[in-house]
Design a binder for these strands. Structure first.
Length: 576
RNA sequence: GGGCCUGUAGCUCAGUUGGUUAGAGCAGAGCGCUCAUAACGCUUUGGUCGUAGGUUCGAGUCCUACCGGGCCUACCA
């Protein structure tokens, strides 16, 4: 076993269950996480890549009601749909779990118990709005009414969208349920558990301060919450809902909390741990197999834990979840690096699930292979600011990068070889100055690529990868095997032999971005050797003279103007 | 209202601790090549770096104000 082998625990923010997600959520966490996981595996490291569906909370109940199904059934179905989509995009989760799993129930109750043991849970009696018609308590924003400030008649209970004034639901004039429209509301007393995050503020602050290499986006949001106003506030971690993890103290009942569940943002991050346990259970593995990823006293001390998420999820991952871990006073693994992303906009506006604006993941896979989306989204990942999807840009970028630069390189090399030498790596000739120059170029480019991938500089990594594809075309232009062949076939053979090996080199390097195309390339070359080119010279002679191959189908068909126009029209407004 | 992020060529974006003539890809123009998905290569036209001040020998880079975009603001997740 390689002594440089390291262990990487990678989690993607878990997507909410209430519907099919759009391209923005894919690039915000799952896709970059997958890129990183694939890269680390390719480098020979041991990887545990966990994702799941986030299934609890009011929106899930409402979505189920709208679909006319029991919420458990609805979630099970939607989990299946999301799992299928994840598979379609080639997301290489080691396990795609569910926050509603028995494992997560147990783990969530376990952590709550530990926090209570350590004096970090406080019971608070508070007043909340209850809707008799809906038979449920209403979260602030599910109460609508007239704004006392500006008179807007569809103000929400937390804030008026018209005048932006922050509100309490009780301040609304003529309040009504946003769910049923019922005005039969009353204020009731109810008891809830609060996580005393404030008690851990200094620990969290010191911990965040030490993370000088984290993205500014990540640390600035955390610090804002830590220092704003009176500092980090305690947070309610229970809700009056039917669907969720029942409130328990470990495996014991929690007196006075009957019929209540934990708040979705308390149990959702714990699912990262529980999901790993689901993985072990599903494979019939012992507990030690998941614990070695999560317990620093059981082997996780050499694990590097990286989380991926959109910026909207940062507070929960920098504060609440770490507070849960720290507050347990047990040696659970804390995150080492948080890679956060801005949002992807759609043609000048936002993607909108409610308005059906933008491209949803099931539709995306209907119209184009996963690699097209993976490449474009990753090479435009919103790392420094919100970024923009337009169909024109998507079409020109994908056609140029994938079809012209990479796909066409594969075509011209394999077809030229077939017509002049047959479908086998040709023999004869040897490397000269052009080859030495190319290999030098590849060597430095490879080092740059590896550095960017290691640092999760995704756009820069994509740029360098593309530059390496270009280097292949430049090499052919310089060596001109089609002209040289007429006078010196051996020389042409040497060029093509290296070029065919270059295709394998590209397939290996590109696999984290475009796994399907990479597989096609390897399969056309009739090789299963996908080893990382740690030794570049050896890597470029992997396919010896005489090794047979076949000319592959066109790797990437171009997006035509007609297609682009049609999709632009189809995805402009409401979801069909 | 407050906090943070952001505004660099037509488009999408890089620009390290402030240092000589501001970069890349795409799009546009020209040339070359003809093996290839009318693909590839080379050259090239585009920018008073949001605006106005300030600090400095020197500012895209630091400070202030203003204008525009975005996110968050703790009971949506």
């Amino acid at each position: 076993m390689d002594s440089r082998m390291a262990r990487y625990l990678i989690t993607s923010a878990i997507p909410y269950i209430n519907g099919i997600k759009h391209l923005g959520t894919l690039i915000g966490s799952q896709l970059p996480a997958d890129l990183y996981a694939r890269y680390m595996r390719a480098r020979g490291h041991e990887v545990m890549f966990i994702c799941a569906t986030d299934e609890h909370g009011t929106p899930a109940e409402l979505a189920a009601a709208k679909a006319g199904k029991p919420v458990a059934e609805f979630c099970a179905e939607m989990h299946g749909v999301q799992a299928q989509i994840a598979k379609g995009f080639r997301l290489s989760f080691d396990h795609f779990g569910r926050s509603s799993s028995p494992q997560n129930h147990a783990m969530t109750q376990y952590f709550a118990g530990k926090l209570a043991d350590n004096g970090l849970i406080q019971e608070v009696t508070e007043e909340q709005v209850y809707s008799k018609a809906d038979g449920r308590f209403l979260p602030d924003r599910y109460i609508e009414g007239t704004c006392p400030n500006c008179g807007y008649d569809r103000a929400r209970g937390d804030q008026c969208e018209n005048c932006t004034k922050q509100l309490n639901p009780t301040e609304l004039i003529d309040p009504r349920s946003a769910i049923s429209g019922s005005t039969d509301l009353e204020v009731r007393q109810t008891k809830h558990l609060y996580l005393r995050q404030s008690a851990l503020k200094d620990d969290l602050d010191a911990w965040i301060d030490a993370k000088t290499d984290w993205p500014v986006l990540t640390t600035s949001i955390a610090k804002k919450w830590l220092h704003d106003g009176d500092g980090l506030r305690d947070r309610g971690i229970t809700r009056d809902l039917d669907w969720g993890v029942p409130v328990k103290n470990g495996d014991k009942e929690w007196p006075g909390m009957e019929g209540k569940v934990f708040y979705v943002w308390f149990d959702a991050p714990i699912e990262y741990i529980a999901g790993t346990r689901e993985w072990a259970d599903a494979a019939g593995r012992p507990d030690a197999d998941w614990q070695r990823w999560w317990r620093t006293d059981m082997g996780a001390d050499d694990v590097t834990y990286v989380q991926f998420m959109g910026k909207d999820n940062v507070p929960f991952h920098t504060l609440s979840f770490p507070a849960t871990i720290m507050g347990s006073n047990e040696p659970w693994k804390l995150v080492d690096y948080i890679k956060s992303f801005n949002f992807l906009n759609y043609d000048g506006g936002q993607f909108s699930t409610s308005q059906g604006r933008g491209v949803f993941l099931d539709q995306a896979l209907e119209i184009l292979p996963a690699d097209y989306w993976r490449w474009w989204l990753l090479s435009h990942a919103p790392e420094t600011s919100d970024s923009e999807f337009t169909w024109e840009q998507f079409q020109t970028d994908v056609n140029k990068d994938l079809a012209d630069v990479l796909g066409n390189f594969v075509s011209r090399v394999t077809k030229f070889c077939r017509s002049k030498f047959g479908e086998a790596v040709p023999e004869g000739g040897e490397n000269g100055p052009d080859e030495i120059a190319l290999i030098e170029r590849l060597k430095s480019g490879l080092a740059t690529y590896e550095a960017h991938m290691q640092a999760m500089e995704i756009r820069k990594a994509a740029g360098e990868l593309r530059a390496l594809w270009v280097a292949g075309n430049e090499y052919l232009q310089v060596t001109q095997p089609w002209a040289v062949f007429k006078t010196d076939p051996d020389r042409a053979a040497a060029v093509i032999r290296l070029s065919l090996n270059l295709i394998r080199f590209y397939a290996v390097l590109s696999a984290p971005f475009i796994p399907d195309a990479s597989a096609s390339m390897l399969s056309a070359l009739k090789t299963e050797d996908d080893n990382w080119p740690d030794d570049l010279d050896a890597a470029l002679t992997t396919l010896p003279a005489g090794h047979t191959f076949e000319v592959p189908e066109v790797l990437f068909a171009k997006i035509t103007d007609d297609q682009r126009a049609e999709w632009q029209e189809r995805f402009a407004g409401t979801r069909d």
